[in-house]
Design a protein around this nucleic acid. Structure first.
Length: 430
RNA sequence: UCCCCGGUGGCUCAAUGGUAGAGCGGGUGGCUGUUAACCACUAGGUUGGGGGUUCAAGUCCCUCCCGGGGAGCCA
């Protein structure tokens, strides 16, 4: 008999189908058995009456354990009492693989235990929902850039040196030479933008910083578009269109999953352009009004970010930062050379920074001087300087943290639940 | 690296310095509409390691290990 997936079950009302999956939970009442079956696409309850089944099949049900794999057949019919709205009247059941002492029970577990069993935790409904939303967000990101004519041009993961110098990198042995895992594809995307006009890379990024917080992973995914002839204002417009599109897609296609996660979607429905844009100067003023002891020129810490995002119900973009606090490659504001044309987007609901971007310095002499000022090894940037030697143009780009974005959409407190196998400072297993 | 919190049956937790317990999960039995089902019975423990104080330590002290989330830094 042909396999039917639970997600398609509504179109099989009244038919007999076969479902291949796993036992999610079982309950019984006298000569009646309720089996909650999952197949990866959904959950359905199968009901078995003793009188409707051969004796050995009915007896088999009582030997089934949580997460053992089973094949069930029966007729489908709508039933309001059933979770999911449809129910199967069981006519046949077959055990495929056993499951003795499945560790994750239907009751509470601590984070420690669950993370240790991440390979099994993926089967639980909330994790399942979060990762299906991840899939949607990834698809939306690719669709957004495809629709706008961007070329996907992925950056290398092995890199010869730091892109920005300061951040801690994972060092690897590269045929008896040193190499590092990428912390950003940006410099390569700048080369790509000069070749293709509009490009993006989308892949894993590695940071060896000893950060132990709910918004950090040592391995995370980053999307980095880079556009030739785009200035900072164009970049902010691109960012808000991008974020709005992602949110819209999640709301449109992942309603069920958001419901499973008990996400208050009213806060997401509001996320439409334009987003508030404030300068660093305005952010500074806002913090002083809120009685923060915040010195002009300092970078925004986590408490400052929270305070600013609380003042808005949409993501807020903060632009034009004191240049000392920012990276060497950012272009300076013509009217205020002490300011860098950088932009950070802070998501609401205390999610923190999800986007960091800037207009890049495109002048050969100035960027050469910046590299020297930052004490970076010139020889490593030789190819990068070529981009300013041969037909340099104004250009801009940003990086979006995928897991932080998904965490925001899902309303999960910790971003580790937004990636299948999180890598954190003290966790590399499973 | 620094600050704070934690480590007790498989899991989640309780236990004034004085007999280590409950709920869930497992096992057995019961129940014809269960929704984290319910009811009864039952098995299950070197309290993270080491040292110390004490008549007596899960509990107090020292130390080490492991983990958590916050700072810094970032996406």
């Amino acid at each position: 008999m042909k396999q039917t997936y639970i997600e398609d079950i509504a179109s099989h009302d009244g038919e007999a189908v076969e479902i291949r999956g796993w036992l999610y939970n079982a309950r019984s009442s006298g000569k009646l058995r309720f089996l909650l079956v999952r197949d990866g696409t959904g959950l359905i309850q199968a009901v078995a009456f003793k009188k409707d089944l051969p004796e050995e099949m009915f007896n088999l049900i009582d030997q089934l354990t949580q997460e053992c794999s089973i094949i069930v057949r029966g007729s489908i019919h709508a039933d309001q009492r059933a979770p999911g709205g449809y129910e199967m009247s069981l006519q046949y059941i077959e055990k495929v693989g056993g499951a003795v002492d499945y560790p994750i029970t239907p009751k509470e577990h601590g984070v420690n235990f669950l993370i240790d069993h991440r390979h099994l935790w993926l089967r639980s409904s909330k994790q399942h929902a979060a990762l299906r939303i991840r899939h949607e967000v990834v698809s939306a990101i690719r669709d957004f850039f495809n629709q706008r004519g961007f070329i996907n041009l992925d950056a290398p993961i092995f890199t010869p040196a730091a892109c920005e110098g300061t951040t801690t990198l994972f060092e690897v042995d590269y045929f008896n030479d040193k190499a590092y895992l990428t912390q950003s594809g940006q410099l390569y995307m700048e080369a790509g933008a000069m070749a293709f006009g509009k490009v993006y890379c989308f892949g894993p990024t590695f940071r060896a910083e000893k950060s132990k917080t709910r918004r950090h992973l040592t391995e995370f995914w980053m999307v980095e578009p880079e556009v030739a002839y785009m200035d900072l204002d164009g970049l902010m417009e691109l960012s808000e269109d991008f974020i709005s599109y992602i949110i819209e897609r999640a709301l449109e296609n992942r309603k069920e999953e958001l419901k499973t996660l008990e996400r208050d979607t009213s806060k997401l429905e509001n996320i439409k352009p334009p987003f508030p844009r404030i300068t660093y100067d305005e952010a500074h003023k806002l913090l002083i009004e809120k009685n923060f002891n915040f010195r002009y020129g300092d970078d925004l810490g986590a408490p400052e970010e929270s305070a600013i995002s609380e003042s808005f119900d949409k993501p807020v973009m903060i632009h034009r930062w004191p240049a000392e606090a920012k990276a060497f490659y950012m272009k300076r504001d013509e009217d205020r050379p002490e300011l860098a044309l950088g932009m950070d987007m802070i998501a609401p609901e205390d999610v923190g920074e999800i986007i960091g971007g800037s207009q890049r310095e495109d002048d050969y002499d100035i960027i050469l001087q910046r590299i020297k000022e930052h004490g970076l090894p010139l020889e490593a940037f030789d190819w990068y300087l070529d981009l300013r030697r041969y037909g340099s143009v104004p250009h801009s780009g940003f990086g979006l943290g995928l897991e932080r974005t998904i965490g925001w959409i899902c309303g999960t407190p910790h971003i580790r639940e937004t990636i299948p196998f999180p890598r954190m400072m003290y966790r590399i297993r499973p």
